[in-house]
Design a protein around this nucleic acid. Structure first.
Length: 529
RNA sequence: GGGCUGGUAGCUCAACUGGCAGAGCAGCGGACUUUUAAUCCGCGGGCUGUGGGUUCGAGUCCCACCCGGCCUACCA
């Protein structure tokens, strides 16, 4: 597929510029003010100017995002990271030759810098009366539709750079994302937490129920796994004597991709010695409220058709009550699988005759409870079989001290009083091993070293995990996790963009290259992105 | 994995029951010295996702495949 007419025209302009001795990609800019700062400056000095342009020369720079050619004058907006400013290129000011040069060689998407004087146009827009203009970087690809922007979802994800340069809303999502993560760090740092880094490549995976990605470590001649969780490492650090640790990291789960799941996602986990799950619940509430205030400045969130109010305290409902309320089933009295299965089927839950008892409970929670929990809600005290790393409730060993936070129908956080009894932990691992033998690929393998760590003694500890991506979804009102991940996972395209072939005729435009390699018959292979 | 749905110009989208593949923006040429999606005149631009098939004739119908989206399943 050859380059299109617009790309060819722009490459020809590069050829002409090179021939004129103009570098289309100079190494430096001499910008003196960001676009937004230039506007601010003019607002400040304007009262003293008596309607005249600011006599102080300034230089602004940015991407050309619009050009309106009026003949003897041209209006053009340029945009940098701070914002945008209008350039006014006037034949009388710039000179006929420079104006013609601009019209001939500058296209949308190019980066330019302009010297000139700030002033206000008749229609009231603060602009730069341009006295000189230089090309900073020549763009070969034109921008998408100036009014609709780029809307094709696939292209938006595959070529996120185009999405970002076109759609301000997309840029804002990732600004919010950064603010959220910054606020989380601040909250934890101010409370004496130690930020740590634990292995991404793990010889034994654990801390969650999921299929891992597998890789091979040549130097060690051994199979490794990309972490599905950092939980077991962080608790080793509690054993080691740190009282408060946290890590924000990518976890990897080799599972389906949908609106709430990306195989590679960002998780916050923190652990607090001498705390239990009630303490953690309180911190969870504080952390999310703090983060919303810092990143959004409000506790009221639009979420699809709903308004979510994060004002604490958030309601707490036990797993048992929740199930009772939304399904009428009391799981503490329905302890046999066949009866639970029958009741679940009567409610219309998608369970099979061989679905094990705890999985049916989980299915009921997901189907009937979770979608109802739009306002922030803690569900607590889970059945032990669903939670192999959580401590049992002393007054009822069928339950564990665990809670999950649901907001907007999303499972946002998961926490428990950590199981620190090495023998009980060993027993839970054995149960997992049994499930594994029965074909549950997601059951955890036994981690002997972790048991060994617990055998050295771990203080009573509360632990917490938060899905950062889902929190960002909630804060930015995005219903798809892909919208809050810069480069979400997509299947590779079978045919590449074709640039490897198409660009070869233009290699002579690279300065200093006398032997362009293009004539050599090397295989045309490219990443498809 | 299953169901539904989509892929047409650089971008956003049309094209009835199978009958000459179109528009807007962008581009190219021209006019215009305060515009704001500038305006006006003119002109180019297509492997209709890929490969087969049916037909006098396929963007349209059939089959297979590729890549998306939604739902579902899986994801304690």
């Amino acid at each position: 597929m050859p380059l299109n007419d617009q790309q060819q025209a722009r490459l020809e302009k590069i050829r002409e510029l090179r021939a004129q001795g103009v570098d289309p990609y100079p190494p430096r800019s001499s910008r003196t003010l960001a676009a937004a700062d230039a506007v601010t400056r003019f607002v400040e000095v304007e009262p003293h100017l008596g309607g005249q342009p600011d006599p102080e020369p300034v230089t602004v720079a940015g991407r050309v995002v619009s050009i309106r050619d009026m003949g003897g004058s041209v209006f053009s907006h340029i945009r940098d990271g701070s914002g945008s400013i209008q350039l006014f290129l006037r034949r009388d000011t710039l000179g006929a030759e420079q104006l013609a040069w601009f019209k001939r060689y500058v296209d949308l998407n190019d980066f330019v810098e302009a010297d000139g004087h700030l002033f206000r146009t008749r229609s009231g827009e603060i602009s730069l009366q341009v006295t000189a203009l230089r090309l900073l970087s020549k763009a070969i690809n034109p921008p998408p539709d100036k009014w609709h922007g780029l809307t094709d979802v696939e292209t938006r994800y595959r070529q996120r750079y185009v999405d970002l340069m076109t759609n301000p809303a997309t840029r804002q999502v990732f600004v919010t994302r950064a603010l959220v993560i910054r606020a989380i760090r601040r909250y934890l740092d101010e409370r004496g937490f130690l930020e740590v880094e634990t292995p991404t490549l793990q010889p034994v995976y654990g801390g969650a129920a999921a299929r891992p990605f597998t890789t091979y470590y040549h130097a060690l001649d051994q199979t490794f796994y990309l972490r599905i969780s950092d939980e077991l490492y962080l608790k080793r650090l509690i054993v080691g004597g740190y009282d408060r640790v946290y890590e924000i990291c990518k976890d990897f789960r080799n599972e389906g991709i949908d609106a709430r799941h990306n195989p590679e996602f960002t998780m916050l986990e923190f652990y607090v010695a001498y705390a239990d799950y009630y303490d953690i619940m309180k911190m969870c509430e504080e952390l999310i409220v703090f983060t919303a205030q810092e990143a959004l400045g409000t506790l009221l969130l639009s979420w699809g058709p709903h308004m979510i109010d994060l004002t604490p305290p958030w309601p707490r409902i036990s797993f048992r009550e929740a199930l009772l309320r939304y399904t009428g089933i009391d799981f503490l009295t329905v302890t046999d699988q066949p009866t639970l299965y029958r009741l679940a089927r009567e409610l219309g839950a998608d369970v099979r005759p061989d679905t094990v008892w705890p999985r049916i409970l989980d299915e009921l929670l997901k189907t009937f409870v979770r979608p109802e929990l739009i306002q922030p809600t803690f569900v607590y005290d889970y059945p032990v079989a669903l939670s192999p790393l959580a401590k049992r409730k002393p007054e009822d060993p069928r339950l564990v001290e665990r809670f999950q936070l649901f907001v907007g129908g999303l499972e946002l956080a998961n926490a428990y009083t950590e199981l620190n009894d090495p023998l009980d932990q060993f027993y839970r691992f054995l149960e997992q091993a049994r499930d594994r033998m029965r074909g549950d690929e997601e059951a955890m393998p036994i981690d002997e070293d972790y048991i060994n760590a617990l055998m050295y003694g771990m203080p009573p500890t509360g632990g917490f995990g938060l899905g950062i991506d889902r929190l960002i979804m909630l804060f930015t009102n995005r219903q798809t996790i892909r919208e809050v991940i810069l480069f979400p996972q997509l299947r590779s395209k079978p045919e590449p963009l074709g640039l490897t072939e198409d660009l070869q005729p233009y290699l002579d435009l690279v300065p200093g290259i006398h032997d362009p390699l293009a004539g050599e018959d090397f295989p045309v292979e490219a990443n498809s992105g």
